[in-house]
Nucleic acid binder design. Sequence first.
RNA 1: GCGGGCAUGGCGGAAUUGGUAGACGCAAGGGACUUAAAAUCCCUCGACCCUAGGUCGUGCCGGUUCGAGUCCGGCUGCCCGCACCA
Length: 872
Amino acid sequence: MATERYNARDVEARWQKVWNEKDVFVTDNDDPRDKYYVLEMFPYPSGRIHMGHVRNYAMGDVVARFKRAKGFNVLHPMGWDAFGMPAENAAMQNNVHPKDWTYENIAFMRDQLKIMGLSLDWSREFATCDVEYYTQQQRLFLKFLEAGLVYRKNAKVNWDPVDMTVLANEQVIDGRGWRSGALVEQRELTQWFFKITDFSEDLLESLETLDRWPEKVRLMQKNWIGKSEGLRVRFEFKQAAPTGDTELEIFTTRPDTLFGASFMGLSPDHPISAKLAETNPAIKAFIEDCHKVGTSAEAIETAEKKGVDTGLRVKHPLDETIELPVYVANFILMDYGTGAIFACPAHDQRDLDFARKYDLPVKPVVLPTDADPAAFEIENEAFTDDGTIFNSGFLDGLSINEAKKTVSDKLENVQVSGKPQAERQVNFRLRDWGISRQRYWGCPIPVIHCDNCGVVPEKDENLPVELPNDITFDKPGNPLDRHDSWRNTTCPKCGQAARRETDTMDTFVDSSWYFARFTEPRCDQPTNPDAANGWLPVDQYIGGIEHAILHLLYSRFFTRALKKVGALDLEEPFKGLFTQGMVTHETYRLGEGSNGRWVAPSEIKIEEIDGTRQAKMLDSGEPVTIGSIEKMSKSKKNTVDPTDIIETYGADTARWFVLSDSPPERDVIWTEEGVQGSWRFVQRVWRLIQEIADQTSANGNVTDFGDEALELRRSTHKTLAAVTKDLETLGFNRSVARIYEYVNQISKALNKGTDAADMAFAIREAAEYLVKMMAPMTPHLAEECWTRLGLTGLISDADWPELDESLLVEDTVTMPVQINGKRRGEITVARDATKESVEAATLELDFVQRALEGKTPRKLIVVPQRIVNVVA
RNA sequence: GCGGGCAUGGCGGAAUUGGUAGACGCAAGGGACUUAAAAUCCCUCGACCCUAGGUCGUGCCGGUUCGAGUCCGGCUGCCCGCACCA
């Protein structure tokens, strides 16, 4: 039989059809085998899949297929995170209904995913904008409400005063609305919140159990939850504040620096600030100024530190003779602690910046170890490390921790107006989750506002509160607000005319429980607890690092809330988490410098002239500047369309490429050369398998192996052991490298001929093992090779190959020999040689004797099976 | 601003987790086959030097160790997140 070229397009379509017709990847909840749930973060249906998706889903698919081969009952579903702003933007720009836009995108992207040959159970697919899904989400909301996990309070939003609409943080650019360009204002609205802070302690402690999560993600979550032990201290006002308060209550984590206090700070949103503003025009103007920035922490914290002296004065709690001025300051957040602080500029950078600006005292009270107390001064950098307390009266000489304790103990026992002056307090940085969005394309919050009864939950039997279809986007703002026939309803409690809530839910709500819904996606309740408890937790979750905090924390909260309302019984949703890197590409520009127009990789060609890579336009030949490598993005046009790649090279090549080279947690650079390399490899494997299929047949028992056959068999089983381990640990790039190496070895062995029965056996075994090992990564190629080798059934249903451990160990081991830490040669000894015999053999070596010049070594280090080091 | 991460040849990376730095791939150069090209196959490929050998070398500076890409301290650069992007 002649070898034929591998036609990926035909082969891939053919096997996809077979998998589909045989329902190979449809999962049965009642299958008795051990379960394994693999999930990739579901995509937002933006229009087309991008290479980041290809990488994410290729990884998940390798895990799914590998675990399937290992005998697990694998759940590997797919869906769509389908609510959100882009659909509304499309509606405004192109006059298309968000629903139509979204479902059209989903249809297109589903087809794109299907040609990747993913082992997904498509029968479980859903979109979060499906009425069936958001009905259950509304049901959950009502259960959470009943369980006391939902409440309303005032919170700030970014307000665009020209468009008269609420803006998302990303729609605020340099403090201005992205469309109108108007300066954004902060505005308070009554909004819905989930009580995630009920679980602060549990969310923090439980991170310890997530040993299959990246350490960095756990650390980020820990810092985000931000547990701190501090002190609430009441500072007496010299004269009462206009609110009538006689004390100012602050929260601090650094009571040890109390003697370094320089001033007090109030949040612009503090009630005292608001009261002062009524009579003090300067403060009024300042607060208004503070409200002219966006609501994001980044905007607030990067703004220049500014404030206004209120004229109020407080007494220092440890020394009545000290009087401290009270400022309203723009960097103090109302929703952390009490919204007021005491400032110690020497040991806090923000306080220092502020003190320098307003010429307030800076008194160091923590002395760095080894510093001279007389000479130690703070310049423009606060000292925040460990040290010893000084300049602090009775605290002098104590450590920071001792001083914290001493101050806390003392102030807890001082009475001010009949209450202790201070109180120890555990504080969390984590805030409750505001879920209200003033938008159309989201899950409606199922409550009704009644003039008689107040806020009334919709009755369960009235669900769903369905989004109306007849809406318009000709005006800014939420179309639900102006949709009278939808908005006007009757009160479920008293039956009188009432109005629907027009806020919809944050799309993070949609993605906080979809993994549970997949376990029984057509259930007429949010979950079937049996199915959910059977499948969950997700054994391997894969997605972008950008979700390290919010999505994952919200999902962890939801798991606790779902448990509380009896929807499932589970501690943590994701047992294993893997965060993959981005796909990047070179950028290209036509024209001068930063004015140049971005051009796409498909519009140019690259040549190497005198050793330098140069780019020019395909059509005009104009020179193009090659720019930096950046995350693929539409704005920079450095994208490669997965569909184009798959049409040219096939899905297996694309999958193989995104799994190669770069470690999966790191960014991968897409290069045309790299893809061609992968494509050549696919062809090479196909040729190799054809040759082997033609030269060997399924062979009988061979028990005696010559050196060459044995060597190949050792390679086979060593490769299997390594690839198995690499796939277990998601080291896809390593397993790809091993397979390249292994194919080189098989080719070499094949060149030596297959006449001998032992070689024929070893090569045949190698071919079958190779194909099985590649099957999770290049499944179509593997099926085709499987058939070509005359094997029956589908490789997608086949077991992972068996490992012969006896072939992994060798009798001798070669170790490097170092002299004074530098490699000077090597020594081959029996695997089980004793330390003493290795030492003796080492001293016999020519180069060792030469180096020692007859002297005895000062030290001889033998690490068995590793290394020998002679210290002369 | 705050929190987290990353850095190894021309390029992507590997390195048994403190033990031979550069596996494997890409690019490049040389050769074989071919009328020619493509494809394929073989060889070379960190830098430097007095080239049987040796010196230097994992972003920069310092430290621990018989031994450091790996551990510790201090920098620099880039990337991610910051609660209404998904």
